[in-house]
Design a protein around this nucleic acid. Structure first.
Lengths: 329, 329
DNA sequence: CCCTTAGTGTCAACCGGTTGACACATCATT
DNA sequence: AATGATGTGTCAACCGGTTGACACTAAGGG
């Protein structure tokens, strides 16, 4: 690996001069600029960003902690976040916490040690609250953490209302609310519980009752997931509408219905959440509440950039959700 | 951010001593060890890994370049790779190239500048071949690159054979081979073409003919994908078996069949590839060829560790595939 | 009493690049 | 001829931590 010294030698100038062209400061003639560029090219020189970061106290890295990138919602989040981060010159260090609080802690430590400029937290963070006397920007994705931490979220409450309103309008008489997440239930996703709240708030006047199931997903392909759902629907044979808090859950519900020979949407209407790719790959194609992940990711990156420039940002950044009607309702 | 100096002051020892306890070298009494530990705790001190990396010429970061993490195969890959990397003390810098060669180049440069210890390439790399006079370990994931670059792959050829053998055994008379990928066709995935080779090599004796379609996926939810498949099957109404080179494609084929009112598996048998989560979330549940992504990821990390220790590694690391029978065949 | 080992400190160089201070030269303006 | 902008070099300090050389002390063993 050539160093700046080598470039200087090859170009016949001083190290300072090379640094000057590298950083565009002071006066430099076009001639030397070219000489230096030439030397860099010949040596295939790349400035060592670690050294620069060390001096500048800025790494241009952001840490991203999520439960697991293997869940489609998060994989889309990661994709977009990395995209916008890259646009702004930031690199993404990815951490899968599996919702394990001790792993979250370790990752936070690791990210601090590695001098990331900011952390995006898409995982629990609940108990980590007190832990956040980090002196670096944190922003939280779809989880309430503490009121001094900016959050990017979508309108979960309205999402819940939209879902149950649709099911009601379509004539359902008894609704089921299915929640849960990979690697244990979604305890910490406080915001997702607002979906439930919205879901319920739409019902009182209608006289429609609802039942609820918190599914502990055992791994996507695991048969037990569907089995448990089948059992649940056998206990509640009169349920004719389902609101699932994620499209993955909804897909499992569809499986259960197929198994129970319930026709969709005639005997059972289903609505999912997130509108990830899978929603249009299942059959029937899933009606879902869309979170604008792309826009949310863009916002997250912008928040970070602003925070790092010392600007003020709004603490709550909520995006509207939209109902995507497909064939399960 | 406290520095080692602050710790030294608070503990009443020299910087060298702190460094010694930090790195476990030389003689240190338990007493000072404790004092230093205490001081670190009180200051909430974390050694600056950038500074250490700079000195050690080792960052413990690995760069991962893939087409897009939003594709389930890659999101599972990323998940497992990050897991094993973390186990071995490595961090993962994620890069989505979208199969764009110029973006790949930029990412490779970026990773070099940032002193990653190794790169895992899950994206094209074909034209980048000559570009690889990097002086750092590269390993390639499921793509042939150059013969001096170790590769982790699975037995694509056998995968193809297994697939067509199964379709033949189940009585299909005319097969369709559907390939393609998100963001353009899969040109570069040379290895995946071995699947096609295997697929064809199983047919000659049987007298079964096949047709082939290279689908340019337009985005997962896009209706045009299914439309094109429907058109294709209308042109080949006698096709009764499909081998899709990914489960996502297979899911689209299922959609097309539903739309054409072809019953699965009676009138149409379908087999996918990868056996990602989605395979068991569609209906009917998809028969697929499973690549052992977890094991492959583990292997990739191990290769890197070995390479960094200067050990010799085998250039070709191929894993067996397995046929997962579900309900589409 | 000498020698060894343990335990700690001081000092300087180093990783690779950045930056400010300052010196000096050249060239165009006024 | 004086002035100021332009262009480049030298030097040293710095980012935060690591390491080797060396000195010194105290304790324990033979």
């Amino acid at each position: 690996m050539p160093k700046i010294e080598d470039v200087a030698a090859k170009a016949g100038v001083s190290v300072t001069t090379v640094s000057r062209v590298l950083n565009n400061r002071g006066y430099i003639s076009q001639a030397t600029r070219d000489k230096v560029a030439q030397a860099m090219k010949e040596l295939n020189y790349q400035p060592n960003e670690m050294a620069r970061s060390l001096f500048r106290k800025k790494s241009n890295m952001i840490g991203l902690i999520i439960p697991t990138v293997s869940h489609p919602f998060f994989s889309e989040l990661v994709y977009h976040l990395e995209y916008y981060a890259d646009q702004k010159g930031y690199k993404v260090l990815l951490c899968n916490s599996n919702r394990d609080i001790s792993k979250e802690r370790k990752y936070i430590d690791m990210l601090k040690k590695n001098q990331v400029d900011a952390i995006v937290m898409g995982s629990n963070v609940q108990d980590v609250k007190h832990y956040l006397n980090l002196n670096l920007p944190i922003i939280s994705f779809d989880r309430t953490v503490a009121n001094n931490i900016p959050i990017v979220t979508s309108d979960n409450y309205t999402g819940g209302r939209l879902a149950s309103r649709l099911l009601v309008d379509k004539g359902c008489r008894k609704l089921a609310h299915i929640s849960g997440g990979v690697g244990g239930p979604n305890h910490a996703a406080l915001l997702a519980s607002k979906r439930f709240q919205g879901f319920r708030d739409e019902l009182p006047d209608t006289g429609i009752e609802h039942v609820s199931l918190e599914l502990e997903i055992a791994g996507l392909g695991d048969k037990r997931n569907v089995d448990e759902l089948v059992r649940f629907f056998q206990e509640h044979p009169d349920a004719d509408g389902v609101f699932a808090t994620s499209d993955v859950l909804a897909a499992l519900v569809i499986q259960a219905c197929h198994q129970l020979k319930k026709t969709i949407p005639q005997e059972m209407k289903i609505i999912g959440y997130d509108d990830v790719g899978i929603a249009s790959l299942v059959w029937p194609r899933l009606t879902s509440i869309r979170q604008p992940v792309r826009e949310m990711s863009e916002c997250a990156v912008e928040l970070i950039v602003k925070l790092l420039q010392g600007e003020e940002v709004s603490m709550i950044n909520s995006f509207p959700v939209t109902l995507i009607q497909r064939d399960t309702t």
